[in-house]
Design a protein around this nucleic acid. Sequence first.
DNA 1: GCCTCAGATGCAAATGATTTGCAAAACCAG
DNA 2: CTGGTTTTGCAAATCATTTGCATCTGAGGC
Lengths: 153, 153
Amino acid sequence: MKPRASGCCHAHDAELPDLTEKLRRNSRKITGPRQAILAAMRNHPRPLLIKEIHGLLGKRDCDLVTVYRSIDLLRRMGMVRRIEFGKGGSRYELIPEGDSEHHHHLVCEACGRVLQIDECLLLDAERIIEKASGFRAVTHRLEFFGLCPDCQG
Amino acid sequence: MKPRASGCCHAHDAELPDLTEKLRRNSRKITGPRQAILAAMRNHPRPLLIKEIHGLLGKRDCDLVTVYRSIDLLRRMGMVRRIEFGKGGSRYELIPEGDSEHHHHLVCEACGRVLQIDECLLLDAERIIEKASGFRAVTHRLEFFGLCPDCQG
DNA sequence: GCCTCAGATGCAAATGATTTGCAAAACCAG
DNA sequence: CTGGTTTTGCAAATCATTTGCATCTGAGGC
């Protein structure tokens, strides 16, 4: 279980055809705002606030409300995932193509820096809980919080 | 790891002296609203919305704003814990006295029913993450979601 | 290339949770 | 029981998110 800095990385364009295909399949349109939002998220691979995404676009490219609506569409299409860090609103991150495994985050409570934790040890726990509780389709939400090296005072 | 229904249980009054003492120590006052809120939470031992707590009191006992302020005070005094289930606002639950261990919840995504999961397997994970990341004071937030038996359809 | 029309967008305004300002009311130490 | 600090209630401000609606636009069909 090694945390990994989720800094900027690859920006391969393979997601654009993917978007095109998925949108077409649902008779949705490939619009400027949607491409711009996806591009912004690709260039900033960490959980972003709606407000941050909007800021990355420059207010003229698209309205804040459109960011909300587009992100929601992308989420329903399975291209974006919502994450709750508990203050200031929901955050969203791109789901890399072919990514079936989710991951967790380690968030600095002072500065908000985010590391990514790749392994997930809780898939077994979900099955155990299903058996013990009678619940079905059990998923989980797990985030870690602490003070990053720069904020330890 | 056995989920446990977090239904109503004991309502021993040992918390009232505790509250009194803690409040006095910080030169805060023991007021009607604060006692009423604590009593309401003791009688409904599950994560409650501010709105629900307010509802339990009868609007005349105390203003919604006072519930917000009192809950925040109780939280800062370590008597109440905040939980985020991700929709409809934060929830709060009483921390039983002498309780050092936290627990997690299993939430039905359809009806909102909540079971409590007592064991926590992640304390080791926190230490491991501290070592690997350089973060300190690492804590975590973990909730499970699924469909309870009544909502599987 | 042009038309048409469902789907998308912008803007204003509604909603819902939470916070803040301030004057009046409630504790409690002396 | 009195003074002075803490709390409360009420109104209004904030903040994130959603909704209504008139207008605009991408994409398939001509």
